[in-house]
Amino acid sequence: MHSFSLPRAGLVALAIGATVTLSACAGGTAPGSAAPASTAPADAATRVALSYPGGILVLDGESLETVGDFSSEEFTRLNSAGDGQHVMVTTSKGFQVLDAGTSAAEPELTDLVFPASKPGHVVTHGGKTVLYADGTSDSTIFDTDALLASTDALPEVQTIPGVEAHHGVSIALTDGTFLTTVGNADGRNGVVAKDASGATLAESADCPGVHGEGTAKDEVVVFGCENGALVYDGGTFTKLTAPDQPYGRMGNAYVSEDSALIVGDYKDDRDAEGYLLHRVALIDTAAKTQRVIDLPEGVEYTFRDIARGPGDLGYILATDGSIHVLDPATGELTASYPVIGAWEGPAEWQDAHPAIKVSGDIAYVTEPAKNAVHAVDLTTGEVVKSVTLEKTPNEIALTR
């Protein structure tokens, strides 16, 4: 691999305080240009990637049989690359590419690594995948499907250097707009939006502790704040104030790109011990409103335990062992599906504890206490498949 300066002045201007570069091997396009035709794998079966201490398992999404087992670092995070076949594995060197395989090809933890200092958030949207490095605040962007056509080298990427390092996140919209968080070693306070020429469209410093993002219908983007949320819509930021002040934190947004409604995790006590939460934020990105609902007593969850699924509903895997179905339009819990045993919150957020991810109508639920994984049909609540593993599952990511 080698790097060279991007010759197009418009994209050079997009860099925030530095020069845009490319790390080149295969073809790619810049934000805002037409994405290449999809080269998604013919085998559309879901694969389930699970981290465990020192390794990663890959399961077939239908049979839950283990089809791959790879050695890795003691703790890794997993995120879908968005192309239906690959998973990004955060390691000490950067984002390592896991090829989860197809019916015709075995899974492989490849030697391909997108270099990054303190690799963090992975965002897939509009045919682009954005990798964020907390150690530099650099954002690496590539065509989501490019990995499918690049089996022995990294695809061409656009790197947008950050200004001051912080735990942040970036997203590229289909019109070329680039949104990225603003902060430094002392904290994070806002978001800036720039167009494809590098000109600032809008910015806001009214989002203390900014964390996470989610894109709803019509490319409206929501960022979580420690006192509410920040909504970006067509060149304008709108601050939504939490009902609890000065601290009412939304940390993660759980979205459907077909719905204007967002579900967010919510914490109302800065000094609360542990990681269990008992309230949920509901945001209407069209009306620009936010409200917070209380969950029934005994129904608690962590950041790993909310997903969106059939009907654009929310699905909360709670400490009582059930998946609770949340209607984000009404704030009502409409059903409850028992799946696993009751569980307690983790002592540290990295510790293995139950998690949920959804593909189509199927939810994949981990049960670390029993080294188990369950597939649940969310249209009926039926557990359609379960498997006991030889390892204790921690992080989970799906290929589709």
Rank of each mutant, 00 (worst) to 15 (best):
K239Y: 00
A42W: 02
G274N: 13
R8D: 07
Y266I: 07
G84I: 07
L64C: 01
L398H: 10
S5G: 14
H278E: 15
T366I: 10
H121E: 07
P296W: 11
D195Q: 09
K118D: 15
V191C: 04
A34F: 03
P53E: 11
Q96A: 09
T174D: 10
S80W: 07
E73A: 05
Y232T: 10
D43M: 08
Q158L: 14
T238R: 13
E367G: 11
A375T: 08
A165E: 07
I362K: 07
T200D: 01
G127H: 12
G94M: 01
S336E: 14
V365K: 14
T76D: 10
A104D: 12
P246V: 11
I141L: 15
I306P: 00
A272H: 08
K118H: 08
G28L: 03
K288C: 01
G309A: 15
G176T: 07
N252G: 09
T21L: 12
A216M: 05
E257R: 14
G32Y: 02
V384H: 12
T215R: 13
I171D: 04
S23K: 08
T334R: 08
N371G: 13
S103E: 01
P393T: 08
E219I: 00
L261S: 13
E344R: 15
H374Y: 03
R249A: 10
V182N: 10
G251Q: 05
E164D: 13
I316Q: 03
L131G: 06
E203A: 15
C225R: 05
D145S: 15
P328L: 00
E108V: 10
V122A: 01
G32W: 03
T302C: 03
D377M: 12
I306M: 05
A26Y: 08
L230H: 09
T392W: 02
D186Y: 10
Y132G: 08
P115W: 01
